[in-house]
Write a protein that binds this DNA or RNA. Structure first.
Lengths: 340, 340
DNA sequence: CACCACTGTCGAAGCGCTTCGACCACCCGC
DNA sequence: GCGGGTGGTCGAAGCGCTTCGACAGTGGTG
C-alpha cells in the first residue's frame, strides 16, 4: 500500500500527482465535460494509487447535493418486523444503486426532525415509512424544500408521491377468490384494534376493499380486528363461529395472527381447507411457513422499497412528478383454500 | 411564517439580521467563545425568525466533523429481528442525544463500504453490529482513520473497542442457577448449526461458558445446536431425552426456539418446572410472553446500543481509549425453574 | 493613573470541491 | 489559407461554515 498515511488525500493531491488541473480531476469524476482517454487514465491511476476519496462535505457544499436520503422508520407496535426490515434493506440497497447513502431517523423525531435534516441540506430527499391517514408529518412534507416519497397513503395524498400495495384491491381480491370457490359467508380478521383507531391506512383500506367486494358479490361478510397472541386469536375465532357459524372463508390481514389461525382452526373442529378456506395478506415467507401453506396475497416489501427509491430519484432528477403508485396485489394459491 | 421562502437561509443572513458578524453567530451556536447575553438573545431571535438551519456540508467541511456516525447492520438469518431493532433504535436515539445522526450501511457493502464512508469524511465514526470471530471488516477497522465500536467480539479484539453481553458468564450463570436448584444433568440448546460454523462469537462463548461451568460444578451437560422451527425443536428435544433421559435442566440460547421448547416439553411428558427446569438467554419480552414465563438471562439490547454510542463519542472526544466492555448478565427467575 | 488581563466582537483565511468562462489548439470546409 | 467550430484543459470564483488572530473596551491592580 501507500507508505505514508496522509491524513487526507485531496483532489489537489490527485491533480498534482497526475499533472493536471484540479478541475480536470473533477471532470474525470463527474464526466460532465469531455476528457481525453489518455488524461482520464492518468487521473484514474493517480486516484487509485493515492487512495483518493472525495470529501463528502465539500462535495455537498459545492454541488448542493449530499447524495444522501433520509429514511424515517416507524417505531411502534403493530408493524411486522420482517416487513420493516425488508423495506429498509430494499431502500438502502436501492439508494446505493443510485450512489446515495441512507440516513435513518426514528419516527419519534417527528416533523421537526424532517425539517432539521432537510433544511440543513444533510439529505437530498426523504422516504417516510408507515404513513398514517392523518399524519402530522404530511403537511411538513408538502412544505419541505426537498422531495419526498411516502410508503403508505395519508387521507389526502394530493401533492405527494406515495407508493404502496393496493390494499383495497387486495381485500377485494381475497373475497373474489373465496366467492369463486363457492364460499358465501366470509370474515376478515384484521390488524389489532389500536391499528384502526390510530388511523393506519392499509388496515382500513383492506377492510374497505373486503366489505365492498362482499357487497358487490352479494355474499355475507364481517370484518373484525384481531389481536396477535395465540390466546386472543383463539378467543376471536371461537367468537366468530358462535356469531357466524356458517363462516367458511376467512381472510387474515395480520402477519402475526395468520399462523395461529391456521393452527387453531382444527382444534375448533374446522379442517383447513376442507371446512374452512383461509387466505392471508402477508409476505410470502410467512405464508410458505405455515402448515398447510397459506394461499395469500403477498406484501412485496422489496418491490415497495425499490419503487420508493426510484420515485425519489426521479423527483431529484427532474420536475416530471410521478403520480401515486399502487402495486397490484398478486394472489398465490397454496394449500389453505378449496371449493366449498 | 416568513413571507418569502428564501431558497436557503445562511449564517450571513442571520448575521445581517442581527447586526453582528458572521463569526459571532457561529460562536453563539457553538459556545466556543464567550458572547454577551444581550447579543446571544438577539442572534437567537434572528435565527428563529429566519428559520436558519446550519448547512451540514459547510459545517462538516469547515469543522472536519460531520456529526454523523455509521451503523453497519447485519443482514442475514439467525439474527433475532426484535433484538436488532432494539439495538438500532438505541443507537439512533443515543446518537441523537449526542447531536449526531446515523447513516446505515448493510453488511453486504463489506470492508470497502467502511472505507468509503470513513475516507470521505461522511461519518465521524462507525458502529459495527454482529461481529464474527474472523470478521473481514476487523482489519479494516483497525486501519480506519475514524474511531469505531464493535457490538460483539472478534477472535482478537486487541486495538478495538468492543461491547457486548458477557455471554460466557451468561452460559455459566445459567448452569450455576440450575445446579443450585439441584439439577445434575443439563443441556444447552443453542443457535442453529450454521451460526456456529460461521463463527459467531456469542454462540460459541455461551457454549464455552456453559461447558466450563458444567465441568466446574462436576455435573453432566451437553451442548447442542438447535434449529428454529417447531418441528426441528421437537425432534431435537426427543433426541435429547432419548440420549440423555435424566436431563432435568435445559438452557436455551435461541430466541425463536425458546417458545417452542416450553410448549413442547409437556407433550414429551415433561412438565415445566416440575420435571424439567428451563432457563433462556433472550430478551425479557420473549421470556415474559411464554407460558409458563421463562426464567432468563436477559439480552439488554438497549443498554448495549447505548453503550456503543457512548464509547464512540468518548473516542471522538479524546484519546483516552475505553477498554472492552462486557455487560454482566442478569438472571431473572420467573416460572420455568424449580428445585429438583 | 498607567498598566494589564480579560471579554466580547470582528474580519479574513481557509475547508475541499464543483462549475463557469476562457483559452488554446486543432480540424474542417470553402 | 482563413473563419468557425469543437474537444480538451485550465484558473478562479464561490458554496456556507469554523476558527484564528486582532482589537476595542472595561475594570481591577499596584
Amino acid at each position: 500500500m501507500t507508505a505514508k498515511r496522509p491524513d487526507l488525500v485531496t483532489i489537489a493531491d490527485v491533480a498534482r500527482h497526475a499533472g493536471v488541473a484540479v478541475s480536470t480531476v473533477s471532470y474525470v469524476l463527474s464526466a460532465k465535460r469531455a476528457i481525453s482517454a489518455a488524461t482520464r487514465e492518468r487521473v484514474l491511476a493517480s486516484i487509485a494509487t493515492l487512495g483518493f476519496q472525495p470529501n463528502a462535505g465539500a462535495r455537498a457544499l459545492a454541488s448542493r447535493r449530499a447524495n444522501v436520503i433520509a429514511l424515517v422508520l416507524p417505531l411502534r407496535s403493530g408493524m411486522h418486523l420482517p416487513i420493516l426490515m425488508q423495506l429498509m434493506t430494499a431502500v438502502v440497497t436501492g439508494a446505493r444503486r443510485h450512489d446515495h447513502d441512507v440516513l435513518i431517523m426514528t419516527a419519534d423525531e417527528g416533523p421537526d426532525g424532517l425539517r432539521r435534516v432537510a433544511d440543513s441540506s444533510m439529505v437530498d430527499g426523504v422516504v417516510v415509512m408507515d404513513v398514517e391517514l392523518a399524519d402530522p408529518r404530511v403537511p411538513v412534507l408538502r412544505e419541505l424544500r426537498r422531495p419526498s416519497v411516502l410508503i403508505g397513503f395519508p387521507a389526502d395524498p394530493t401533492g405527494l408521491t406515495c407508493v404502496d400495495l393496493d390494499f383495497h384491491r387486495a381485500g377485494a381480491r381475497c373475497v373474489e377468490e373465496l366467492v369463486a370457490l363457492g364460499h358465501r359467508t366470509l370474515a376478515l380478521l384484521g390488524a389489532p384494534g389500536v391499528v384502526y383507531t390510530r388511523g393506519t391506512g392499509f388496515a382500513q383500506r383492506t377492510r374497505a376493499g373486503f366489505l365492498a367486494a362482499v357487497e358487490q358479490a352479494g355474499v355475507s361478510g364481517v370484518a373484525w380486528p384481531c389481536e396477535e397472541d395465540q390466546a386472543a386469536v383463539g378467543a376471536t375465532l371461537r367468537d366468530l363461529f358462535r356469531r357466524h357459524p356458517q363462516t367458511t372463508g376467512i381472510v387474515v390481514h395480520n402477519e402475526a395472527a395468520a399462523d395461529h389461525v391456521i393452527r387453531l382452526l382444527p382444534s375448533l373442529r374446522r379442517q383447513v381447507p376442507r371446512d374452512v378456506s383461509v387466505i392471508a395478506i402477508c409476505p410470502d415467507e410467512v405464508a410458505e411457513r405455515t402448515r398447510p401453506a397459506l394461499s395469500s396475497v403477498s406484501i412485496p416489501a422489496d418491490e415497495i422499497g425499490k419503487q420508493a427509491v426510484s420515485l425519489l430519484m426521479a423527483k431529484l432528477a427532474g420536475p416530471p412528478p410521478p403520480a401515486a403508485t399502487l402495486l397490484t396485489p398478486v394472489l398465490t394459491v397454496r394449500s389453505s383454500t378449496g371449493r366449498r
